[in-house]
Design a protein around this nucleic acid. Structure first.
Lengths: 336, 336
DNA sequence: CCGATGTTTGGAACCGATTTCAGTTGCGTT
DNA sequence: AACGCAACTGAAATCGGTTCCAAACATCGG
């Protein structure tokens, strides 16, 4: 049991106990090579004896580095983002950083506001699925390192998923099942994921000479999905692709409530492969993305940026996606 | 458009432009009543013109307050915790605080470790469903304000839910449906929520002369639930109560896979009422807790503590819970 | 054994705010 | 007009580290 101090112990206390100057303590702790082994020994012993923990504020003030990174997400209750958070926290911690999580509630204005007020408190931002237009954020990011996740900005390091290819896999899967009339329930217009998913679908569907209608969900949430369900049913589509699994779950719920069989009467596909997607009845066919790797790599990119390292391949990575076929997709019926 | 500075603008720059001393700038900004209206005017104008934002690190160093609160949760992918996070962030922001989220991965050792390293960076902690024993955390919390959520510690402000009463509601609901043999799939032993839920069940079941078996899930996760399912089926229980909805979903999935009808052959109840509980088939009967209010109140308690305010009623609150009956519970069959 | 060289080390300045203390100013009295 | 008091302001110390600079020390070759 270390006996924790009631008053804060500073570098001076350690210096006094070790019989050296505060400057040497700082050096011994920060860069052991700079100080003689004997001194290093004594300092470390003294620090341990006193239970010394450096004052982060003071460190931040002198170095200009807070050792915190800000992770900005639209909605932490979406499992995709909470999983990314875990990966980010894990990697950040390895590098000695803490994570300031910011939930923007899907609101671009809140996003800008929070980024602005926090810009001085973090060394860098991980902007995950940003909903605000780049130009609104830019001014506040001048002095701050930024890596975007799920968004490809110009000249900003980013890690993304190959959404277009995921969408292609979905389309081909459905086309192979005989579907000719597909519907897409879109996500936020500002989301580049959304744009690429739509693009990928359009390309594959057009190539097959099939037909694609698209709708925009009110919001990329469960309720957005339930609300969109009736719009979809008003079309003659035999398969629906949702921007994400949460919307898909909303659709599924409403379809079931309306007595529409999935996949007997309509097939349903989501994106993100959140854990709950496997738990529904029927389990949801979905496009998996590499959440863990996205989070870890984004942190790596950010730390590179902060430490002035250059990546050989440049700090841009697009990770492959893959379709996971479950029970919510099946052969097309000619009419509903 | 404010023209954002490339170099950081400090209080001195503002002072120079306003023609006053740095001290007056500090006063004008922190406590406007302390300076003459004219001075205040000039300072504010200068600050705005330069786009001045105070350096948080310097502020933290002098005042000893970081204006950050740490929210420690076992698993942010559990919707119950991400929802609490949102509530906490909302309230914290109103009070001018940021939230450092810490995910302990359900591991007590990680929890202690993270609390220790972060104790100096936050003004206070919100310990949500702590898994570590109080005595391990205590040493690091001596100098830090703490409010616990979902955990009643001695002499620590806390906000909890009336789990025992929620459990009573569950038991009475099931007993009324004719169930006489119940099973409880427990959560982490360290969780006081778990203990109270079990206590509430035991009391009500005993009062009715019925029978309760309990198991411990490997972990309070979906996989923990699927793993526990077969143990439950090995008993003759006609109704199962899970520690939380996530476990319940795991049970449901495995029951369905085994061809056991819910609620025809076995009834199922969860706790927390996470959004996904309503989306399953059948939708899950669950005990709702006041997530939003828990988060908000916990922040209020913590800020009171930080500002040295005393609550009239003391900083301890237990919020009511209520059973939401959905499709996963039904009349008991005599045998399975 | 001495000077040259390279390491360690301590003193002091500094980061950007806050706050004490003392001096100045403004105002109301007489 | 002079005085006293209160309100306001600025200089300087301070928070707890980091880092520049120069002094002290050790090490080496000649």
């Amino acid at each position: 049991m270390t006996d924790e101090p009631v008053v804060t112990v500073t570098i001076k206390d350690v210096a006094r106990l070790a019989g050296v100057s505060p400057a040497s303590v700082s050096r011994a702790l920060a860069d052991p090579g700079q100080v003689r082994p004997g001194t290093r020994e004594r300092v470390h012993r003294a620090a341990a004896a006193l239970g010394y923990h450096p004052n982060q504020a003071a460190h931040a003030l002198t170095t200009g580095r807070t050792r915190m990174i800000g992770l900005v997400v639209p909605d932490i209750t979406n499992p995709i983002f909470s999983t990314i958070f875990q990966a980010v926290q894990g990697r950040a911690r390895e590098g000695g950083y803490s994570v300031l999580l910011v939930d923007t509630g899907e609101d671009p204005a809140t996003e800008v506001d929070l980024v602005r007020t926090l810009a001085r408190q973090v060394d860098g931002f991980l902007l995950c699925s940003p909903r605000a237009a780049q130009e609104y954020l830019d001014p506040f990011l001048r002095a701050t390192a930024v890596v975007t996740i799920n968004h490809r900005g110009r000249r900003v390091p980013c890690v993304t998923s190959d959404n277009a290819d995921g969408a292609r896999q979905v389309a081909e899967h459905l086309l192979a099942l005989g579907h000719r009339r597909l519907a897409y329930v879109a996500g936020p217009a500002a989301s580049s994921d959304n744009r690429e998913r739509l693009r990928g679908l359009r390309a594959a569907v057009a190539a097959a000479g099939a037909e694609l209608t698209d709708f925009t969900a009110v919001s990329p949430t469960y309720d957005g999905g339930t609300a969109a369900a009736d719009l979809v049913l008003a079309t003659s589509a035999t398969a629906v692709i949702a921007f994400n699994d949460v919307i898909a779950l909303g659709l599924l719920n409403r379809f079931t409530a309306r007595g529409i069989g999935v996949p007997q009467q309509i097939s349903l596909v989501g994106f993100d492969d959140i854990p709950f997607a496997a738990m529904t009845n029927p389990p949801l066919t979905s496009v998996a993305i590499a959440k863990q790797q996205i989070g870890r790599t984004a942190v790596d990119f950010l730390l590179d940026l902060l430490d002035g390292r250059q990546r050989p391949g440049g700090s841009r990575l697009m990770l492959p996606t893959h379709l996971i076929v479950r029970g919510s997709t099946g052969p097309s019926v000619l009419t509903r």
